[in-house]
Amino acid sequence: MSIYEFTARTIDGEIQSLSIYRGNVLLIVNVASHCGLTPQYGDLESLYRRYRERGLVVLGFPSNQFEQEPDDEATIKAFCTRNYAVTFPLFAKIAVNGPDTHPLFAYLKQQQPGLSPDGEIKWNFTKFLVDRNGRVVSRFAPADTVGAIEREVVKLL
Rank of each mutant, 00 (worst) to 15 (best):
residue 143 A to F: 07
residue 28 I to C: 14
residue 77 K to L: 11
residue 61 F to V: 14
residue 104 L to D: 03
residue 120 E to T: 03
residue 134 G to F: 03
residue 134 G to H: 01
residue 32 A to R: 04
residue 135 R to P: 01
residue 123 W to V: 08
residue 97 N to G: 09
residue 144 D to N: 14
residue 14 E to A: 14
residue 51 Y to A: 10
residue 111 Q to D: 08
residue 82 R to T: 12
residue 13 G to Y: 12
residue 71 D to G: 08
residue 65 Q to E: 15
residue 48 Y to H: 14
residue 70 P to S: 11
residue 45 E to V: 11
residue 3 I to Y: 01
residue 126 T to L: 04
residue 124 N to S: 10
residue 3 I to W: 08
residue 102 H to G: 07
residue 16 Q to K: 15
residue 98 G to R: 04
residue 7 T to L: 11
residue 128 F to Q: 02
residue 38 T to D: 12
residue 72 D to P: 01
residue 25 V to R: 07
residue 47 L to Y: 13
residue 82 R to W: 02
residue 10 T to Q: 13
residue 129 L to W: 04
residue 132 R to F: 00
residue 69 E to M: 04
residue 107 Y to P: 13
residue 53 E to V: 00
residue 62 P to T: 00
residue 20 I to V: 15
residue 96 V to R: 03
residue 64 N to D: 07
residue 122 K to C: 05
residue 14 E to N: 12
residue 73 E to A: 10
residue 36 G to I: 11
residue 43 D to R: 03
residue 39 P to F: 12
residue 7 T to W: 04
residue 98 G to M: 10
residue 31 V to M: 07
residue 137 V to N: 03
residue 46 S to C: 02
residue 128 F to V: 09
residue 31 V to I: 15
residue 114 G to K: 07
residue 88 F to P: 03
residue 13 G to W: 07
residue 6 F to Y: 14
residue 57 V to Q: 03
residue 133 N to V: 01
residue 9 R to G: 01
residue 18 L to Q: 14
residue 53 E to H: 02
residue 61 F to E: 13
residue 7 T to P: 00
residue 30 N to I: 13
residue 76 I to G: 07
residue 73 E to K: 06
residue 73 E to M: 09
residue 46 S to E: 04
residue 11 I to L: 07
residue 147 G to Q: 11
residue 56 L to G: 01
residue 140 F to C: 09
residue 88 F to N: 06
residue 82 R to V: 09
residue 40 Q to R: 11
residue 32 A to F: 05
residue 128 F to E: 02
residue 14 E to F: 12
residue 67 E to W: 00
residue 83 N to Y: 03
residue 17 S to M: 09
residue 68 Q to N: 06
residue 101 T to E: 15
residue 4 Y to A: 11
residue 35 C to Y: 05
residue 29 V to Q: 15
residue 157 L to V: 08
residue 98 G to D: 10
residue 7 T to F: 13
residue 141 A to G: 02
residue 95 A to M: 00
residue 123 W to A: 04
residue 27 L to Y: 15
residue 120 E to W: 00
residue 36 G to V: 08
residue 5 E to T: 11
residue 16 Q to A: 15
